[in-house]
């Protein structure tokens, strides 16, 4: 995929007026999230990673540690504030979903989910999203609900909590005390991402290098 905001890195604003102390603290902590399994078992952790690779595919040298972020949220014990009747709390629901995905993978391909090829994983995830999985290990919990309201949701939230993802979509990022001045059509403050216009990457790069 071509880069729409070349040279833009939201982190260059970290020490400028767009970030305040509490934001710096929060993002620093997030970027220092411990690696590796803490909540999940090693096998479960790999399964989560194999799902995340499909939900938010990354081809960068230093990928966003989506799985670590999912773990951190589960360890914090903070829920979303609602769950469907019959669905257990997040941690337990995650484990059930991982076990059920393994069971489905074994039934269909004879190996655990994390060892499947990308397209094979996609196939199972699509059927999960559509509620088209019926193995008994789901325990009566609707797979579609688990997909949309838990598994894929947590992964998507994790991915878009990382500054690299913010830079990728050209979002302005943290903004306090400084907010924005130019808010109309096609208006950009000098501290916002510049997108490539008319194929002129160099112009966008030049502007994005000046973002502070």
């Amino acid at each position: 995929m071509s880069d729409r905001y070349p040279g833009y890195d939201v982190m260059t604003k970290r020490n400028g007026p767009s970030w305040n102390d509490v934001t710096r603290r929060v993002i620093d902590n997030r970027l220092a999230t411990p690696k590796g399994p803490r909540f999940f078992s090693a096998a479960e952790f790999e399964t989560v990673r194999s799902i995340a690779d499909r939900i938010v595919p990354q081809r960068r040298h230093d990928p966003i540690p989506v799985t670590d972020f999912v773990e951190a949220r589960l360890l914090s014990g903070q829920g979303d504030g609602f769950r469907q009747a019959g669905v257990p709390q997040a941690g337990e629901a995650w484990r059930k979903a991982l076990a059920a995905l393994d069971a489905e993978a074994q039934a269909a391909h004879g190996m655990p989910f994390r060892q499947l090829s990308g397209p094979e994983r996609d196939g199972i995830l699509h059927r999960m999203q559509n509620g088209d999985l019926h193995h008994s290990s789901w325990g009566g919990i609707p797979p579609a609900t688990l997909f949309t309201q838990l598994v894929a949701r947590d992964i998507v939230f994790a991915y878009y909590s990382h500054p690299t993802a913010w830079s990728e979509i050209g979002w302005g990022g943290p903004a306090s005390p400084r907010g924005y001045v130019r808010t109309g059509y096609d208006r950009r403050d000098p501290w916002e991402a510049a997108e490539v216009k008319d194929g002129d990457d160099a112009a966008a790069i030049r502007k994005n290098r000046r973002v502070r």
Binding site: P17, P177, R178, G179, Y180
Partner: peptide
Amino acid sequence: MMGGWRNWSQNLLE
């Protein structure tokens, strides 16, 4: 304004 003179890049305009 929020940020006062330290946030001049916004507040001189706003």
